[in-house]
Write a protein that binds this DNA or RNA. Structure first.
Lengths: 259, 259
DNA sequence: CGGCTGATTGAGCGTCGTCAATTCAGGTGG
DNA sequence: CCACCTGAATTGACGACGCTCAATCAGCCG
């Protein structure tokens, strides 16, 4: 399942503007002509606003699989919009324990955690070769003081992240292993579908261990639950290739139909 | 442990401005003279900005113990800053399961979840008789377009909520019962201490069941863990009255010193 | 092909949930 | 003032879900 035809009108990058110290500067695609604009920051903006946003989001950055876009403790300067690829974010406790807090795909924002303390509080690691748009936060704040729609959209994105986190808390706090995995798969397919991918076939970009960390389970439990879903005829599982055979069945699981 | 001397210069309320349909309008205290301003939205604002904020936060609302400040599904219009009292927020799944997502005390903001979808996505319920300052969100957005400091502070507050949520995910995803309860107690006392309360004596405003819901445990487990902490000499537990005897011991528990 | 990482599967155990009984605190009314 | 009632908290016994430890298997890349 390669990244689809989403990539449009890629142009050679101009020299980085403004003296930002972004590590690998790559290409430039205007937000106004980006296929992800309906899923990303530009949603709802007027043509004029889009033009200004285009100037703001001037640099891009490539991150290779396994590399970090940023790490906890690094100074916060920019937000990042995933253009292509796939990321995980994870927080770490002092004792080394760590927890995957989310998986991000094209059109989703990374780095919101850094605003509060002027430094990032989690790691963002690419799970496949990826590209992000760099959004200097000071510029974004400035522009969002000018444009109501941009301000509004940014606030909605932050709020949506909070609502998402609450959903994860519900999952971690009160669901059992099968319910968690079912909810996770349905969430993934839903987001992939919004990006034009098949709702029934997907390739997991993360390991069983990463899924387990996200869901508060051990990797063996994740693996076992996948096998059980296969036995029950809900899924077809071939390593990281998943085919959903009974979406309604998964949905039932999430809604406590186990009782 | 009654609400301390925090309440200052309470004045009779003027008639509600702007036609907001807030249910019970109560008192008015200017943000500029509020004892909580260093913990709340006014943090870092200039005198001029504070004056404008004072006009914006014109109404207050009293919520009696057990009543909801807002409920999931209700239209979102305003944020709320807790002035006195104590709240819980909880989300519900379709099947009735619900999850406490947080406890809010004086100076903390409620309602951020509502921004994303123009309606609230969780319930906010008072755990004791409380008062909140009503912050009409449209006004806040307008004012934060004028004032950099206000914009910045608001963004920091949203981001802080995201970081907090990630901490809860870590707790729910990878800690055991004792660690969860210890982390919870330390967090509570820390926040109470920032508000001038004793770091060692506290009164829980919530039931064991609510604590359990927040921590992803059953109420019996919470109760048992309290008892164990008492046996171990970490706490003195008398129903909802808790005295912390060994803060360092609790801290050790949180940092996986169980091994 | 060999070595490596990730995934699967099994056996046994531990933590926490379930069910149930009892105690405790607070409020109400006789 | 005490008996009563209700909701919350405590404590015990038991069982299940998921974790631990371990062996095996499947891909992948040098």
């Amino acid at each position: 399942m390669p990244t689809t035809e989403v990539i449009a009108s890629i142009q050679p990058s101009p020299p980085p503007v403004g003296g930002h110290t972004e590590r690998n500067c790559a290409f430039k695609v205007a937000c106004s002509s980006c296929n992800l604009r309906e899923l990303c920051l530009p949603l709802g903006l007027t043509t004029q606003e889009l033009e200004r946003l285009d100037k703001l989001v001037a640099t891009r950055r490539s991150v290779r699989r396994g590399d970090a876009l940023f790490r906890a403790g690094e100074p916060f300067q920019s937000l990042y919009a995933v253009r292509t690829g796939f990321f995980k974010t994870c927080v770490s406790a002092e004792d080394g324990r760590d927890q995957v807090t989310g998986f991000q795909m094209a059109g989703e924002l990374l780095g919101l955690d850094g605003i509060s303390g002027d430094s990032h509080s989690c790691d963002a690691v690419a799970l496949e070769d990826s590209q992000v748009c760099v959004i200097p936060f000071a510029d974004l704040e400035r522009l969002s003081r000018e444009f109501v729609d941009l301000q509004r959209q940014f606030h909605k994105i932050m709020s949506r992240e909070i609502v998402r986190d609450h959903g994860v808390m519900l999952l971690l706090g009160s669901m059992r292993a099968e319910e968690r995995l079912a909810a996770f798969l349905l969430n993934l397919t839903q987001r992939l579908q919004a990006r034009g991918f098949s709702p029934s076939a997907l390739v997991l970009r993360m390991t069983r261990e990463e899924i387990g960390s996200y869901l508060g389970l051990k990797l063996e439990t994740v693996s076992r639950t996948f096998s059980k879903f296969q036995d029950d005829g809900l899924l077809e599982v071939k390593q990281r290739h998943i085919r959903i055979l009974d979406q309604a069945g998964l949905q039932q699981l999430v809604n406590g139909a186990t009782c």
